[in-house]
């Protein structure tokens, strides 16, 4: 944990000069080259031509909650999806590893954005191809902002989940596929908000892993980090093979599990 926080702090320091300016194309390009090297070193990322698309508001109203939609070519044998917010202290928001029950045509989530930034979505296929697309988002302060509005409620509701069926799913869904939104109540404290009384930062406590199964078959496993918004929300499509079960593990190794029979709360 300590080394992890140290790494975060280091990244924060590295990120600082980037926050001071609005748009610097050279620096942004260099930042992405660095990240690409760190995250995808041995792979050639092909600029997407319809394989993957990334949507987000050009200018976010709430930097701590920026809705992001990734749309994928239904014909793509998708293995994993990576979401990167370049100028965030922890740039890799999360990695979705898709299982046999997944219908990965569209994934939605909500992210924190700490400074004006490019976002990248990277798709990896089962046959070893990689595609990348990007988008520029104007929002700032989403990582260090005191986001929790009702601290008592946040802890009281910790680990609760909701599953909502989305009636109008994305186009191109195969027959029988279902689209759902999963809500997980978790403050996702990112360790960057200082408690002035103790002079310590509020300890990081954030969702690390979300595993979703339909029956016994994996839909997806999400490896997440501090850039996911408070109360993480994920919209995804899948082939129902039984009740949907969700297991969430956070950075304190607290685990929350729920089995949904239909639209349900957990």
């Amino acid at each position: 944990m300590t080394s992890r926080l140290f790494a975060l702090a280091l990244l924060l320091v590295l990120a600082l000069p980037l926050q001071g300016r609005a748009e610097d194309q050279t620096a942004d390009a260099a930042r992405w080259q660095d990240l690409r090297q760190i995250l995808f070193a041995n792979h050639t990322l092909a600029p997407a031509k319809g394989q993957i698309a990334l949507e987000a508001p050009d200018r976010a109203m709430d930097a701590a909650l920026v809705p992001v939609t990734v749309t994928l070519d239904p014909g793509l044998p998708l293995k994993a999806l990576y979401l990167v917010v370049d100028n965030n202290p922890a740039p890799l928001v999360g990695t979705f590893h898709f299982g046999p029950a997944a219908v990965p045509v569209q994934v939605k989530t909500r992210v924190r954005v700490d400074a004006y930034t490019h976002m990248h979505a990277v798709a990896e296929t089962t046959d070893g191809r990689w595609f990348v697309t990007d988008r520029y988002v104007k929002a700032a302060g989403g990582c260090s902002a005191p986001a929790t509005k009702d601290a008592a409620l946040a802890m009281e509701r910790l680990g609760q989940m909701r599953l909502k069926t989305v009636a109008e799913g994305p186009t191109g869904l195969p027959k029988g596929a279902v689209t759902a939104q999963l809500l997980i109540s978790h403050p996702n404290y990112n360790g960057m908000q200082m408690d002035q009384v103790t002079r310590n930062y509020t300890p990081a406590r954030f969702v690390r892993d979300v595993t979703v199964k339909s029956g016994d078959t994996l839909v997806f496993q999400l490896e997440a980090d501090i850039s996911l918004s408070e109360d993480p929300a994920i919209t995804f499509s899948y082939q129902p093979k039984g009740p949907l079960s969700v297991t969430v593990r956070d950075s304190t190794d607290a685990t929350f599990s729920h089995v949904f029979q239909g639209d349900d709360k957990g």
Binding site: L16, Q19, R21, A22, S144
Partner: peptide
């Protein structure tokens, strides 16, 4: 901290 982040900070509220 960087200017933009801080300006946004107060802009929130």
């Amino acid at each position: 901290m960087a200017r933009r982040t801080l300006i946004r900070a107060v802009l929130f509220l």
